[in-house]
Design a protein around this nucleic acid. Structure first.
Lengths: 155, 155
DNA sequence: TATATTTAAGACAAAGTTGTCTTAAATTAT
DNA sequence: ATAATTTAAGACAACTTTGTCTTAAATATA
């Protein structure tokens, strides 16, 4: 598995926010239902994203969570790093400490190359573009593909 | 993490066998020590590889484990599949069931591309080539880089 | 102010993975 | 045969990740 379940949940939630009306808070309970992610678990994940200044939250009636900045300024890599840390890109694929060009493991070279491509992919993809495709129905972030019809919490 | 710890252990053990004299059984306890992998845990992993017909084992004095076929006929993908299953290449990166070209998740296209490259990489790399590089010291499969000096169990 | 709503925080449970230990079975050598 | 060596198998413990529940704190509205 490339990404932890927490990270997958975080990405899907981020895409839900990105595909919704910008600047509106969406309640975690609504996201939890739409995405079929355990509520309290999702809460903690979103807190990590808030701690990383990618999201911001607001308590009380009509509160919720929203992106802390425009979707085009948040990359998938930002989210992965915030939740799973940097291990995906820094750790030796065979788990050997000190693996590098000088003391490579048998998979170092081939994996470095792939890793770089993955990093580029995650870094160059923003919530804006994917969020748009989710909104217009071309991409889905739920099992059944239904993640539209938001209750907008304007404040 | 791309590969489970079990899979990493299995790959390192396979490379140890591939880098040793071909056709000789190597005891699991020796591999366990050299690679610093828990003995009983390694035993179970090697049993999976044996079940997949990649290794064969022999009990009793001077027994152990060896490759079941020439190193050039065993790819890294064979080992990954035997231990981690096919999920790495078949599962949606965002965990959505039924993800595919018709109903893609937001990362489907980009990840399919990368996945294919990873599959090619693992499939085209054999234990023979890497084993040779380990044997001549160009690549390492242990923390300290010392995995030579085998006690050969000839039988 | 009182109430309802919503996130925050922490304890705890469940599940999965990793690691340990004991006993059994097979094999070799004496 | 007996003993020593080695893998096989299964129970179980430790750790990590995932999921649940309860209480607290903040906020909005009436």
């Amino acid at each position: 598995m490339l990404l932890s379940k927490s990270c997958i949940y975080g990405l899907r939630a981020s895409l839900l926010l990105a595909s919704s009306q910008n600047g509106a808070y969406i309640s975690i309970s609504e996201m939890s239902e739409k995405l079929d992610i355990p509520f309290h678990f999702l809460t903690k994940i979103l807190q990590k994203l808030s701690a990383a200044s990618l999201m911001e939250s607001h308590r009380g009636p009509n509160g919720g969570v929203r992106l802390a900045k425009p979707g085009e300024e948040i990359s998938l890599l930002n989210i992965v790093f915030a939740i799973d840390g940097h291990e995906l890109l820094t750790q030796c694929v065979l788990g050997l400490p000190g693996c590098g060009i000088e003391k490579p493991c048998p998979m170092h070279d081939m994996w470095s190359e792939k890793k770089e491509k993955i990093a580029q992919m995650l870094e160059s993809t923003t919530l804006l573009e994917l969020g748009q495709d989710v909104r217009n129905g071309r991409l889905r972030i739920t099992d059944n593909g239904k993640a539209g019809f938001f209750k907008i919490n304007k404040r």
